[in-house]
Amino acid sequence: MMRVQWQRLWSKWMVAALAMVALPAAAELRVFACEPEWAALAAALGGDRVSVDTATTAAQDPHYVQARPGLIALVRRADLLVCTGADLEAGWLPLLLRKSGNSAIQPGRPGHFLAAEQVRLLAVPERLDRALGDIHAAGNPHLALDPRRLLSVAERLAERMAAIDPEHAAAYRERLAGFRNRWQAAISRWEAQAAPLRGRRVAVHHPTFTYLEAWLGLERVAMLEPRPGVPPSSGHLAELLEKLRAEPVDLILHASHENARPAGWLAGKIGVPALALPASPGGSPGVGTLESWMDALVADLLHAIGAEG
C-alpha cells in the first residue's frame, strides 16, 4: 500500500519535472544578445515569435562585462546567441558558453551568431602587439554604428532565425523585407541630413565610432586614449592640447559609457563642443529602437556643429 502511494508521488514529481524542462522549448525562440543593438535587431526581425534578453546596456562598456551568474542562467536557456564577436566579448562570453551546458549556442552551431563574421571589419591591425594597446586582431568590433553593415547583418540574422525555427521561416523573411525597406529609406534620409558632417574633423576618446566616422565622412585626427583601452593620462592630454591648438577639430566625441571628463576638459580648453553619443540603442531616453538611435546620433552630431535642419 505504502509502495503504491510512493510510486504515485514519484510519478507526479517526474511529470512536473519533465514539464519544467520541456515547456520552455516549445514556446517562442529565446534569443540571448550580448549588446542592445543585436537585441533590438533580433526583436525587429522576430517580432512576437522571439523573446530577447540582453547581457549589457548602453551604459556599460561591453569590453568590461562580468560573467555574472544571471547571464549564465540566461545563456543556459537560449536557442540563439547574437553577439558582436571580434573579441569584443573575449573577457566574459567564452566563460558563459562553457558554464551554460547549452549545446545549441556553442561556437559552430547554428545558434551561435556573431555579427563580426557577417561583414568586413575596418581597422584590422597590420601588426599585433599588446604594446599597441587592447587592439582587436579581427578588426574594430563596433560595426553596428554603420547602418549599411547592420543591414547586411540583418539579412544573415533573419536567415539564421529561419534556419533555427523553420516553422516560422516565412514570417522572419517577411519581417526582414519590411525592415529592409524601412532601413534603406532611413539610410538615404540620414545620409542626406548628415551631408554637412562630411569632412568635419573630430577627436575621439576610444575608437568606438570608427564605422560612424567612415560612413558619415568624419575625419578623425586624434584619440584621447594614448592606446586603445588605456585611459588618457594627463601627459597625453597635454600633448593633445598642443596638437589640437595647432590643428583644430570641430568636435570631441566619446561614448556615453566612457569617462566624460577627459573629453570635457579638452573641449573646454580649445573651445569646441564635447559630445557624448550612445554607443548602443537605449543609451538615453527615447532611443530604444535602432532607428531612433541612429536618428539621435545624426541629430546630436548636427546639433553639435550647429548645422541642424
Binding site: M20, P24, G70, I72, A73, R76, S100
Partner: peptide, 12 residues
Amino acid sequence: LSWVAPTSMLVE
C-alpha cells in the same frame, strides 16, 4: 558533473 537549472536565477 555539474548541472545548471533552466531557471532565470542561476542554480548550479
